[in-house]
Amino acid sequence: MLRHQFREGKSVTSRCLLALAIILFTPALHAQNMADHTYTSATIATGSRVYLQRCALCHGPDGGWVEDINLARGKFKSVVTDKDLIEIIHRGAGDGRMPAFNLTEEEMEGIVAFIRTGFDPDGEAVIIGNMQRGKQVFNGKGECSSCHRVQGIGPRSAPDLSDIAFKRTPAMLQRTLTRPASSLMPINRPIEIETAGGEVIRGRRLNEDTYTVQIIDGNERLLTFEKASLRRFEVSTTPTHTPTTLPEDDVADLLGFLLSLRGNAQ
């Protein structure tokens, strides 16, 4: 099984590789082609130092200075593998606008690990598995597709995941699967409404302001209510799904699939 173990968490101040900006514009989608390996916290710490010295001048401390790209969030113009990143850093690109960098093997592995783990040298371990197997888990025994919509396919009763890779880091996605109560965003908390006529409606919020709330219910009805007209409006802190019971390898593969969901940039 092709997989990478990362450590993920908060952001680190970091410095130049227009290198990475160039590759982000490559239209080709490459298959993952690397052997199993583990990115330790020491490797990622090395990468943070390399980034500070070589990359941050162009990409910024947070990886987001290049338009439509955010290295820390994994936001690229196309899906890019570790091998792609290594090759572009090593060879350079853009008719000399990005020079080749002669990094040691340790430095090269470190910078890739640092980018892949969201710019954090000391977060929690995350294993990312095979995207194709993850898609099978998503549509099969994981039962994710019974609630979530992807690329126009599936129900709307849970958040659309078509571009989830731009919105969540690997660690955040893993926590959503394994410890959903700790990662539930307020807007996605289940709600229960009782109308003036006594109808009880359960669903999730799409929009809310001081006076009104818009929800989508289990039947995919889009409903808007004035809060003052409701008998009851309760927001639950309990997620709609329990921690996954999938084996670790299935969780890793599912993460691999979720991290491939980049909307129109796929």
Results as ranks from 00 to 15, higher is better:
K75R: 11
G129C: 08
G256E: 08
R232P: 01
G96Q: 04
D217E: 07
Q132Y: 04
R175T: 15
V66H: 01
R189P: 07
S183H: 12
C58Y: 02
T240W: 10
V112F: 05
L246P: 10
P159N: 13
I164G: 05
K167Y: 06
G140R: 13
R149S: 14
A171W: 11
L254S: 04
E107R: 01
R54K: 08
L259V: 10
G94Q: 00
M1C: 11
Q53C: 02
V112G: 03
L230D: 14
D84K: 00
E208H: 05
D122V: 04
T212S: 12
G129Y: 06
A21F: 09
P186C: 14
E87L: 09
I115E: 03
G256A: 12
R168I: 06
D62K: 11
E234V: 15
L206W: 07
G110P: 03
T212G: 03
S260A: 15
F25N: 12
I88A: 14
N139D: 14
C58T: 06
D62M: 06
T26F: 13
E105F: 00
V213Q: 07
D163F: 07
F76L: 04
E87P: 02
D250M: 10
G134Q: 02
K10A: 13
T46A: 03
T81V: 03
A252Q: 09
G198C: 04
H59C: 04
I187M: 11
Q5N: 13
T176C: 13
E107K: 01
T117N: 15
F257W: 09
K135V: 03
L222K: 15
T104N: 04
I22A: 11
K75F: 02
A19L: 09
H90E: 13
T238F: 02
I187T: 08
P99F: 04
F166Y: 11
D95E: 15
V200D: 05
S145V: 12
D253G: 13
E109C: 00
R49C: 02
M185V: 13
T224G: 10
M1V: 10
L230I: 12
S11C: 07
E234W: 04
A100V: 10
L230Q: 12
N139Q: 15
G96R: 08
G142S: 05
P170C: 08
D62F: 03
R205V: 15
L177T: 05
N70W: 02
C55W: 01
G94F: 00
H241C: 08
L24F: 06
H30T: 13
L2T: 15
G92M: 01
P121E: 08
M131L: 09
